[in-house]
Write a protein that binds this DNA or RNA. Structure first.
Lengths: 228, 228
DNA sequence: CGAAAAGTTGATGGCTTTCAAGTCGTGTGG
DNA sequence: CCACACGACTTGAAAGCCATCAACTTTTCG
């Protein structure tokens, strides 16, 4: 496992006191192919969720946390990183989470690798891995910071989003047992069952038969997801 | 986002009833460089946590769940995958989680890519991504299935493991505020504080000063981690 | 049809959160 | 050097959400 020394390094900067978590991000930009080293003090923002992802970073020494924040302010750290570890890798054009130093840290920044430089199979695998990481980040927020109802709703909406890519009629198959849903969402079968019954009673979803359902009130569901 | 159709496909197999979760895994092995397609019924085990990771898989159609199980039986699904998505990618020699079909599924299996076939920089990145995924899987179990005390203990043990790679004296810096720990572990600062105080009172950890501590009873801690 | 598995619903309890007050530690300024 | 102030941390009390336990209903499949 990669070493994560949470030990502070000495940064010759004058002001030693870290900015609060609301610190502005620093632009340690590196041009084209030239790697560049940037020093950060503790609790400095490297980039924020939604920022353009032009760079990827490698920790020389220090430590970095990656986190996501829900609209109502709930925060979930999704990764803790130490020397040698990389972050800022993404398959999208923007970062899916924010990055902030925990201690004084030096980062090496590089431009993102161009997929044309590597075999297609390898590129596809990297893309898949990055997609995986992004999905796991989202799921981490669900498990760490969402209520039972929010988890179930988030799950249903994700299912709908995925299914609709294929079939537009809106009918979605719930090809999982309650136990599997519970084990995915970090809940018990009873809580999942109660949440689904509640959503059905409130008219937000409709069970067509067995394990098929469709969404009757998408806006209503989205309000319950914790994501808006 | 990759499409995850949870729709069942028709498998001409005679017995339609899926085996229970305790199903034996199937060896859909592919030789050397030849990709091979294998059909699975619903709730069939593709591989188990700890199995040798000789293959990687791509879902042609169907759906697969990846999960981890704690020694006492608590289960946490760590990924839900649909058509086009890959799994079984790992930087280690064995799988860090089990894979089971949710519905009838066809999988294309390939041998794992050899790092010598691609540029070193790309290989390093893939390795990092796979390490990330593995860490996120572990964290998913912590958030989904562990109690507050188990989360805090797991966190301390991980910190110790990482720090000890560098310094063997056993003294570990806790370079995070209680709020950051709480946001990492999906708890509140009060719960984190209470858990740490409890561990200190019970003599399992000792706070040397400010944010430095060391483990006084590793076995005792491990028993509280939920991992044994 | 009957048994077993899956799902639902209710009652209760426990763990964690919330709210609140107090303590500790560090940096500042008199 | 010490008093003060502010933030970080700790501790207590009470509430709330979800888990647990239990009974029942529904579905599935031989």
């Amino acid at each position: 496992m990669v070493d994560l020394s949470l030990e502070s390094i000495e940064i010759p900067a004058g002001k030693k006191v870290g900015q609060p978590a609301s610190a502005k991000r620093r632009e340690g930009a590196s041009d084209a192919a030239s790697p560049m080293v940037t020093a950060f003090r503790e609790h400095e923002l490297v980039f924020a969720e939604g920022d353009a992802a032009s760079q990827r970073y490698e920790i020389i020494d220090g430590a970095v946390m990656l986190f996501k924040v829900l609209p109502d302010g709930r925060r979930q750290l999704v990764e803790l990183l130490g020397p040698g570890e990389m972050f800022g890798l993404t398959c999208d054009d923007e970062h899916d989470c924010s990055a902030e130093t925990l201690v004084a840290t030096r980062l090496r920044s590089n431009r993102r690798l161009d997929c044309s430089e590597v075999p297609a199979a390898v590129c596809a695998m990297c893309q898949q891995l990055q997609e995986k990481v992004k999905n796991l980040h989202e799921h981490t927020v669900i498990l760490g910071r969402k209520s039972a109802m929010e988890r179930v709703v988030s799950f249903l909406l994700r299912l709908a989003e995925m299914s609709n890519a294929k079939r537009a009629n809106g009918h979605i198959r719930l090809a999982m047992t309650r136990q599997e849903m519970a084990d995915y969402l970090g809940l018990t079968i009873e809580t999942v069952s109660r949440s689904l019954s509640d959503l059905r009673r409130r008219g937000l979803i409709v069970f067509d038969k067995a394990d098929w359902f469709h969404i009757a009130d998408r806006e209503g569901l989205e309000l319950l997801s914790g994501d808006c």
